[in-house]
């Protein structure tokens, strides 16, 4: 387990990381991550989410090709209970 964690750290260090704003909070991602990678990272298939990057809606078919850049403001939205 310790070894696995160490290996992950080494891999992460060898990748250049970027920081984006995810729903207003900083989030680190490997450089050249796509929006779809971010969704996988947070454990969602993205089917029930709306995504915006820098205030622009990014539709589901465009998420794989949409590469995130340093400082991007990403909003991920869902339908919650409301009257």
């Amino acid at each position: 387990m310790q070894l696995k964690k160490r290996a992950k750290e080494i891999v992460q260090k060898s990748l250049k990381m970027i920081t984006i704003q995810l729903n207003g909070e900083p989030e680190s991602l490997p450089e050249a991550s796509a929006l779809s990678d971010l969704l996988a990272h947070i454990g969602s298939d993205g089917k029930t989410l709306a995504t915006l990057v820098n205030d622009q809606v990014v539709r589901p078919p465009e998420r794989t090709a949409h590469i995130l850049r340093e400082g991007d403001r990403v909003e991920i939205l869902v339908f919650a209970g409301g009257g």
């Binding site: 729903n23 207003g24 947070i42 454990g43 969602s44 089917k47 029930t48 989410l49 709306a50 909003e75 991920i76 939205l77 869902v78 339908f79 919650a80 209970g81 409301g82 009257g83």
Partner: peptide, 22 residues
């Protein structure tokens, strides 16, 4: 039925009602 748009919260996945309602 009405629903409200909210920021995704990874600690509260059950907030996502779109799946079950649809």
């Amino acid at each position: 039925v009405t629903v409200a748009l909210r920021r995704f919260n990874r600690e509260q996945l059950e907030d996502d009602l779109f799946g079950p309602l649809s």
